[in-house]
């Protein structure tokens, strides 16, 4: 899917592509926000290879998003259709809201699914259905789309999380519930407000050798405990340390200063708040809302 960004800069398009190709992100979900340029980190050759083979999913989940009547499924001239008109698009026969004139010109690149009906009044349950394709069932938890994509699309030995979830607020972490029976390996890593995770740098006071030594003891203690008490909890907890180690190795991925400055503009534009991922997210989010 090609999005038309408001600024049309190569930076937005290219860097995001590289991120999607290289981060091992099987899926990237944003709630009320969109993924963003993450920086020209490493391995352009690998990027090319991945781009040619790998499919990625970008899921933009607008909780409380815009109405379908003012976007993809206008019903002009009806009681509930609202005041806006429908306009033709680049695909004959498909009309969308007049509020999306730019998108209308790109319609041949898009697919609208108008037949979705969750038959559900409760927002929480509806959201679960949209993320899992399943009606909530307390005796069986099902993985979210992103976790399924992480399981099926991310590379076999890719150390990085296969599912990155950018939330608009603070917080952040790993939502082990997302992955259900697929296990915490495929759970989303949450970047609250698009910020990189904290504590990704090993302090100078801890040498690499010391770290390896203490991690080896930790693993041994865990094995001892799990001999007769291995549960989902023990597995989830111990796996987070493996994931932390891998995230640390690739932390430059989250460093906005390593983004390309292809068109000569400053990497972080001054009027867009704190540097970091959120800067870019904020920019793209605005674009998302007005000119999807």
């Amino acid at each position: 899917m090609n999005c038309t960004y408001a600024c049309q800069s190569a930076e937005h398009v290219v860097a995001r592509r590289r991120f999607l190709g290289l981060a091992g992100a099987g899926a990237l979900a944003g709630v009320g926000a969109l993924a963003s340029p993450l920086g020209a980190f490493v391995r352009p050759a690998a990027a090319a290879e991945l781009q040619s083979k790998q499919k990625r999913i970008l899921m933009v989940y607008l909780a409380g998003g815009l109405s379908q009547l003012e976007s993809w499924d206008p019903k002009p001239g009806t009681d509930t259709g609202g005041p806006f008109r429908a306009i033709p698009t680049s695909v004959p026969g498909i009309h969308i809201s007049e509020l999306l004139p730019q998108t209308a010109r790109q319609m041949h690149r898009l697919t609208i699914v108008r037949g979705v009906n969750i038959n559900e009044n409760d927002h929480g349950r509806g959201s679960y259905i949209m993320h899992t394709g399943r009606v909530p069932d307390p005796s069986n938890e099902y993985p979210h789309l992103g976790s399924v994509a992480a399981r099926c699309l991310s590379l076999e030995n890719d150390p990085l999380p296969g599912y990155i979830h950018i939330t608009p607020g603070g917080g952040g972490g790993l939502s082990s519930g997302d992955a259900a029976f697929l296990g915490p390996r495929y759970a989303s890593v949450v970047l609250g407000g698009g910020q990189p995770p904290q504590n990704t740098v090993r302090p100078d006071a801890v040498s690499e050798a010391a770290d390896q030594s203490r991690q080896a003891i930790r693993r041994r203690v865990n094995d001892h405990f799990a001999r007769r008490r291995r549960t989902a909890e023990t597995e989830a907890y111990t796996q987070t340390y493996d994931q932390a180690a891998e995230l640390m190795k690739r932390r430059e991925l989250f460093d906005v200063t390593k983004e390309p400055a292809a068109d000569g503009r400053p990497r972080v534009r001054p009027n867009q708040g704190t540097p970091g991922l959120s800067t870019a997210v904020g920019c793209v989010k605005r674009t998302t809302r007005l000119r999807l």
Binding site: G173, S176, V189, Q198, Y237, T240, Y241, A244
Partner: peptide, 12 residues
């Protein structure tokens, strides 16, 4: 809820 952030907090 086990998260990578918890492990990073203990690690670093």
């Amino acid at each position: 809820q086990a998260t990578v952030h918890q492990a990073l907090f203990f690690d670093n």
